[in-house]
Amino acid sequence: METSLFMHSLKPLAYLDPGTGSFLIQTLIAILASSIVVIGIYWRKVKNWFKKISGKEPGYVEADLENDDDV
């Protein structure tokens, strides 16, 4: 039985050719992007702490995960 790392596509006949490379890279990018987000959060916390002790307004704004981008 396959481990959960790989899975059969339930819809094998995608009409759009995604390109195998495009499929394979997504997992790696998701890992890298998550790491960037985590590092970014801590980096901004550090920056805001410095701004706070120097009396400036903290500039960090959470990425708005709930609302749409205004287009």
Partner: peptide, 8 residues
């Protein structure tokens, strides 16, 4: 991409 081992 139709082969499962290429679908992470």
């Amino acid at each position: 991409v139709q082969k499962p081992e290429n679908n992470p």
